[in-house]
Design a protein around this nucleic acid. Structure first.
Lengths: 202, 202, 202, 202
DNA sequence: CATGAATGAGTCTTCATTCAT
DNA sequence: GATGAATGAAGACTCATTCAT
């Protein structure tokens, strides 16, 4: 029933948009009565939040699988895998993802409910730690944050907003973003040897 | 009058949130009647869109000024200036910016109305062209897109979501992002001399 | 408009009962839209409260007129007048009054909004003060309270619940209640001479 | 089971108020399912009516006991006992009583279901008959009605609305009401000897 | 041009009641 | 007899928009 309702929500959301997605309409599409909807979700927000959570879980599963699988390869390959997995994750249900991003108010808060980014952060951070010696950044937390946010944001733009340049060219996109990450983690001349000479404020 | 209405809209939006911002309330805060509001804006969406446009114009002005002013300095300095200007732009009215980002549905479309990023793209692209020789990327459009989106997205996160790491440490943030950009534009061993070894698919 | 809405409320209340009196129905009967109703009354409770207040004002006017007019006559005549006026007041719109008493939740609180009893209390108390010498009660406030509440309650029962005995016999009812009041204010043997020998606790 | 449900109803009613008291909630508090509730009570109204009846029975038991026990004492003492018992009866569960009086629609009709007042009337009437010679009222039914209603109404006000005057002073309240009754039953100069001089219309 | 009263479709939500298990 | 998931009619209330003045 919960699944049915979430499916209906996703469907109404993508087909009609957030504004036209009323709880009655969702219940109707799900083939149940509004009353039933409210037996499983206290209010509309909770319903959408649950859908967001489910979507995030699906995305996270992809990213986690990719990172775990690529753990033994070299840094460049892992980064490329991360980017690719992120793109795939955004394509799980890109229409829904777009709705979340563009139409659902308070997404900021909703998204945090089952913090996709938090999990990704931890995964990433764990991996970078293992490759500590190859990386020339001082603060690993900051670096992780930069990497994760960058990949997420660029992928988001790539998938959702379809920027003119790079549009459709998925492989090129992945290359570029990988270069961006690698250039940051292993900058000029620092072949995994020493920390950056003067990279940070202090 | 238009300005008065936009001011009122901004105020109601930041003080009451998007959900509680009705045209009647906005008109009341502006000190005019709803009828007058509808004489200048065909509907609520147009009103909010105009406010977004104004906000974007203000942000763009800051970034343009920074880039034009810094045009003669070296690449690293310019990038740092770009990041700094972007941060400042996001602080022009961060409360309003947050509302736009988190609460206003269809922001995606509204934002495009007077594409902040498009303008920034052109500015950036023009600048990178001038420094073509120092940069080791093949496709300048792609590179511009990557840079602009990266800066925008990271800054957004930094200003809006205040991530745990780097939180509040504005200078460190600027350093990191600048490093990220420079590592991408001038990667390992390529001291502004040769094109990237294997940066793109082809 | 306010009057129209109150009239409609009274009509729906008496004709359909409290449970079936929805704001939409009231608006429809008033010949306006729900929206208009909510432009004049913040919620349903306020609407009903206003109707109660209006009804109470009408009742109070009758009682006040009677007491002011009878001020110069002897105590017995004034009490009789008070009772008669109270009965008349309860007949102003007895159907509505019955609805208020029997069906409107929280009447206790609503009734206090424009405290009919409070006003009656003050009027009564003022009068008893003038006739202080004829009355053998120690605490005038308590006596006033007893009198006002007694008259109100008995009249209420008489008009609303139509008790078997005395039913319909208005003049007998008025006689009895007047006797009740007089026996209390001027008890056995105390012809306006001294205070009661042992009437109170102390 | 019936008792359990009535207890739960009373509890929900006093703790949540009438508006928030749903059959589902009551069943939950009673520790049974809604279905079971509907196996013992055809609908919500019947449930509340049964609770009212139970409450009334409890109140009546107190009053009956007091009157029967005091039957041999003098009139003044009996009246005082009646008033005291009525006050106590209203304090059996004053919170519930208040809810009945102020929040439950149609209480008027429900209350009649097992007419507390009717029983009290008969008890009272029986007692007054025994003391016929001491009383100077012509119509015993009318007198009984006046007495019972007066005591009930004044007590109700005293217990529920806590009027400013007499508030909290239970003994004084009892004294005053007793005086009121006695002044009515045995008026000025008529020491239980002759019928009233001019008490009734005819 | 300005006004602001009026509109009414549409929203979320509740809850008494049923009935298949 | 007990259960409790499912029902869906109905209710209070909002708000973008219009239009007569």
């Amino acid at each position: 029933m919960v699944e049915t309702l979430l499916d209906a929500t996703a469907r109404v959301l993508t087909r009609e948009g957030y504004d036209r997605a009323s709880t009655n309409r969702i219940a109707a599409v799900a083939g149940v009565s509004v009353g039933s909807l409210y037996q499983y979700f206290p209010n509309k927000e909770a319903l959408v939040a649950a859908l967001v959570a489910r979507h995030n879980r699906e995305m996270l599963a992809l990213i986690r699988a990719a990172l775990e699988e690529a753990g033994t390869r070299d840094l460049d390959a892992v980064m490329r895998e991360l980017v690719k997995a992120t793109v795939d994750a955004h394509l799980v249900d890109s229409a829904l993802h777009r709705i979340f991003a563009e139409q659902v108010p308070r997404m900021g808060q909703l998204a945090k409910i089952e913090a996709l980014q938090r999990e990704t952060f931890l995964l990433m951070r764990g991996y970078l730690e293992k490759r500590r010696s190859e990386i020339s950044v001082r603060d690993l937390d900051a670096a992780t944050s930069i990497c994760v946010t960058t990949v997420e944001a660029l992928t988001h733009e790539f998938v959702i907003n379809e920027p003119d340049t790079l549009a459709g060219d998925r492989d090129r996109f992945i290359d570029e973003v990988t270069r961006l990450l690698m250039g940051y983690l292993v900058p000029a001349g620092a072949k995994g040897v020493a920390p950056p000479r003067r990279s940070l404020k202090g």
